[in-house]
Simulated scan of single mutants.
Amino acid sequence: MNNLLLRILSALVMLPVAIALILFGGWAYTVVILLLSVLILLEWNMITTGKWKTPLFLVQALLVIALGCGMKLQGTVTIIDVIVFLNAVLLAALLSKKDFKLAIAGGFYALLPALAMIWLREFVVGGAYVILWAMIIVWSMDTGAYFAGKKIGGPKMSPRISPNKTWAGLVGGALLAVVTGVMSARFFGFEPLYLYAAASIVLALWSQVGDLAESAVKRKFDVKDSGAIIPGHGGIMDRVDGILFVMPVVALYLYFGA
């Protein structure tokens, strides 16, 4: 109960701030997105290496900030930018004596959602509402899964990766995500609603893949939480793992002419 109360209080503080930043946009929004991305890189490096003061973290952070600012100013990232990013991260991984696959995964884990969220907000008509709609789906999936899993219980979905997740929680979360996804789509004036109902299911389930992926990384390195920056929630990665997977998908769908 104490942990649940902390989660609720933290959400009551963070949600109004997050919504205000999304609605107003501008550099304040971009700076917060990039700051969160740097914190995600920090948590990733702490999980996978036990330390963050490495050339790898510094290079990753500087590149994410540079590419994020480039997206804010130009609305695009070129293939040359991606090649430079890959080569710089590989070199930094070599200097840090870190596994190349983990280095690249961590870089893109923080970079792609940041670019997606900046592009959606600044270069898509009604992008602020698209971001809020997608976030409502992820939040609803998490909330529904939490309470359905606690109330119903039943068979575990993936006991070796995330022992607390149940199939009942997955179904309960998906149902709530569809309901809130359709309701919020109607509120924002998105049409047709049947398309957003289908998209709500897909994004809700994909957000759970993001949740399980983060849990798998923590399990591999025997870490319970990615951090302790958010009372009741753990680290930044613990709170936004679903969003990190969902936002690039939404951006790609809209970018290719939805």
Rank of each mutant, 00 (worst) to 15 (best):
R7Y: 13
S10T: 13
A11F: 15
L12T: 05
M14I: 15
M14C: 15
M14L: 15
P16F: 15
L23E: 15
G25H: 13
W27K: 14
W27P: 04
Y29M: 08
I33K: 07
L34W: 10
L34F: 09
L34C: 05
L35R: 01
L39P: 09
I40T: 13
W44V: 02
M46H: 14
T48I: 10
T49S: 15
K51V: 10
K51Q: 13
P55D: 08
F57E: 02
A61Y: 11
L62D: 11
L62A: 14
V64L: 13
L67M: 10
C69H: 04
M71G: 07
L73Y: 05
Q74V: 08
Q74K: 10
V77M: 01
I79N: 14
I79W: 15
I79A: 13
I79C: 13
F85H: 08
N87C: 11
L91Q: 08
A92V: 03
L94D: 10
L94F: 12
K97Q: 09
D99A: 10
L102N: 10
F108H: 05
F108D: 01
A110C: 04
P113L: 03
L115S: 09
L115C: 05
A116W: 03
A116T: 06
M117W: 09
I118T: 11
R121P: 12
E122N: 15
G126A: 04
Y129W: 13
Y129L: 04
I131Y: 03
I131E: 02
W133I: 00
M135E: 06
M135H: 06
M135D: 02
I136E: 02
A145E: 12
K151G: 08
G154E: 11
G154K: 12
P155G: 08
R160E: 15
K165V: 07
W167E: 10
G169A: 11
L170N: 04
T180L: 08
T180P: 00
G181C: 07
G181R: 02
M183P: 00
M183A: 11
R186N: 11
F187P: 00
F188H: 00
G189Y: 03
P192I: 07
A197N: 02
I201T: 07
V202E: 02
V202L: 15
V202I: 15
L203P: 00
L212D: 06
R219L: 06
V223F: 01
K224A: 04
S226I: 06
S226L: 03
S226N: 07
G227N: 07
G227I: 02
A228H: 14
I229G: 06
I229N: 03
I229Y: 02
G234I: 09
G235R: 01
D238V: 02
D241A: 06
G242N: 01
G242T: 04
L244F: 13
F245V: 05
P248M: 04
V249C: 13
A251L: 07
L254R: 04
G257S: 09
